[in-house]
Amino acid sequence: MSTDLVLTGLTKTFAASPNPALDDLSLTVTAGTCTAVLGPSGSGKSTLLRVIAGLETPDQGSVSIAGRDVAAVAAERRGVGMVFQRSLLFPHLSVLDNVAFSDRVAGMPRARARERAERYLDTVRLTGYGRRRVGELSGGQEQRVAIARALAAEPAVLLLDEPFSALDPALRADMHELLEAVRADVAPTILLVTHDRDEAARVADRIALVEHGRLLHEGTVADAYRRPGSVRAAELMGGRNAVPGRVRNGVHRSVLGEIAAAGVDEGPATLLFRQEDVRVDEHADAASLRIVGIVLVRRPTGARSELTVGAGGVELHAEVPSMSPLSPGDEVVLSVPEALAHVVAR
């Protein structure tokens, strides 16, 4: 079922806005993998999906599925399935006939279409729900049916436009497990749009960060968190520590000291590290930056607390267990393993 999806130089501008919704965006999603497109509201995420699906025409660029440019191919013939925030099920049809809809439109006999629909209901863990009406389903069950309906059309590419955003946290977790099961069963190529970086990390193989219609970063989940391509990419992934400095002779120098910066151009550069990776009141080994500062602010965040620490004229962020006795005014020793720090050019 799965195949490569290759986007090249996509540009799209709408008459109501002087700024492009997509700006020379290129991205490849390898067959059978899941890439999450992450970015703030208005960044072009949904427009990207609509262009791939054939619901919008790009001003420039190409969409290639299985090595074929589908620019001139009608939306219904592209081999693309799409699931939206709302399930958009047909209320007058049973669950089974909703899932069988694409096969029936294609001319398949009712009995055969329903037989195939049962298989996809099994895939989304709704065995036995076929005779129910849409109005008898919960929100999570509706989204499961919507996914089953999309899969029943055997798409080469499955597009998910924030399909779990309206669900409560427990149901979202269930849907993430479901998506994992679907991938194990039918291995579709998936492009998922989300504004939730935790969701992206949970379900995707790779993350593409988009803002103002441009691709800021694309890579593995681990790289998106700990080796982002820019300060803005780090911010979009929730990173809060960015220390300015300069790179000279392959070394970044800042108020925190020196750290290797191989491959980074000489000149102004920023040292990035995540707040979760900062060790508090621990002995710093030889491969760590050691920082002495003063706690400025402490904010509870559930089972942990976030510290804002003043050190050398910059503010740093760290996390400690909720039972930690540290409070504003206390001196604190921080250390950051060099392996978890990352330098990017400014």
Rank of each mutant, 00 (worst) to 15 (best):
R119I: 07
E76V: 07
A100Y: 11
L192G: 00
A75W: 14
L178T: 08
L296P: 00
L171C: 06
A269N: 03
G263V: 03
P328C: 12
R227T: 03
R197V: 01
S41W: 11
D198E: 15
T220H: 12
L25G: 08
V186Y: 09
G135D: 08
P155N: 10
R104V: 00
V292F: 07
A262T: 09
S17T: 15
G239C: 06
N241E: 02
L171R: 14
R50Q: 11
H342L: 11
A16Y: 07
V29H: 09
Q143P: 15
A341H: 04
L5Y: 11
G267C: 11
T28Y: 01
L96Q: 10
E154K: 02
R279L: 11
P321E: 08
V221A: 12
T11I: 02
D24G: 15
L126K: 15
R206P: 04
A31G: 15
S138G: 09
G313I: 07
A111E: 14
L88H: 11
V73W: 10
A31R: 15
E235C: 00
E282V: 15
A71N: 04
L272V: 01
F101K: 05
V343P: 04
S230G: 09
A156H: 13
G257V: 10
L159Q: 05
G135W: 04
T220C: 09
E177R: 15
L316H: 13
A187G: 01
D97W: 00
M237K: 04
P325R: 14
L96V: 09
A262Q: 13
L160G: 04
D196R: 04
G128K: 14
F164G: 04
R246G: 03
V251W: 15
V193Y: 03
E338T: 02
E56S: 01
D281M: 08
E338A: 06
G130W: 01
G67M: 03
V203G: 06
A53H: 04
A117H: 05
T8S: 14
M108Y: 03
G44K: 12
L271V: 14
V193C: 05
R116E: 06
E136Y: 04
A36R: 11
E136G: 03
L158N: 07
V51A: 05
L49N: 00
S288K: 12
L151D: 08
Q85E: 10
V83T: 00
R132W: 05
T35D: 06
V193T: 02
D285R: 08
L178E: 09
E136T: 01
L10T: 01
Q60A: 15
R246Q: 11
G54D: 01
A184Q: 14
P155T: 10
R131Q: 12
R78E: 02
L307M: 06
S335A: 14
H342Y: 14
V63Q: 02
L126I: 11
L7C: 03
P188K: 10
L7I: 07
D59H: 05
M108S: 06
Y225E: 01
L49T: 00
V320Y: 00
S2C: 06
E266L: 02
M1P: 13
S165C: 02
V343E: 06
F84M: 13
Y129N: 12
S230Q: 07
L209W: 10
L7D: 01
A74S: 09
D161H: 13
S254L: 12
R149D: 03
L96M: 06
R202H: 08
S64T: 13
G302N: 14
V145Y: 01
A148G: 06
G313S: 05
P300I: 02
R346F: 00
I259V: 14
G107I: 04
N249V: 02
R110M: 07
A106F: 10
